[in-house]
């Protein structure tokens, strides 16, 4: 099973994303703050996808996406921030969803990322 990191500080939305990850066949990992997210990736070893809300406590926004993009195969941004698209395009993230998001579209995106092997080729070389 592929690990999916969920970085979201709103408990209910985090729960919703967890349901969707499970539904898409992923193994959810939950973080409620930026630094927690980075620590979780380090602890988990290999993470296929990170679903990231940009406005989380402590490490956030562009810095958070940059930190995760170095360690995770695909980053998907799910945010209500006005500059979400801008941050997303700057870091070549896989997809960007604006809250409130289209559940079906995110579901398709997750299913696509978690199935097939093309994601493996894009995985950056591990340094640690």
């Amino acid at each position: 099973m592929r690990r999916v990191l969920i970085v979201e500080d709103d408990a209910d939305i985090s729960e919703l994303l967890t349901l969707m990850v499970v539904d898409a066949g992923g193994e959810p990992l939950r973080a409620f703050a930026g630094d927690e997210a980075v620590a979780a990736v380090a602890a988990a070893g290999e993470v296929a996808v990170a679903i990231v809300d940009l406005s989380v406590p402590r490490l956030k926004g562009s810095a958070l996406v940059a930190a995760l993009a170095a360690q995770v195969a695909h980053v998907v941004v799910v945010s209500a921030a006005r500059d979400a698209e801008l941050v997303a395009s700057a870091h070549k993230v896989r997809a960007c969803f604006t809250k409130p998001f289209d559940v079906q579209a995110l579901r398709r995106c997750l299913t696509e990322l978690l199935s097939g092997d093309q994601s493996q080729r894009d995985l950056p070389p591990r340094t640690a």
Partner: peptide
Amino acid sequence: RTPITSLQG
């Protein structure tokens, strides 16, 4: 947006 995301989601 936050509550609507949960409601709609």
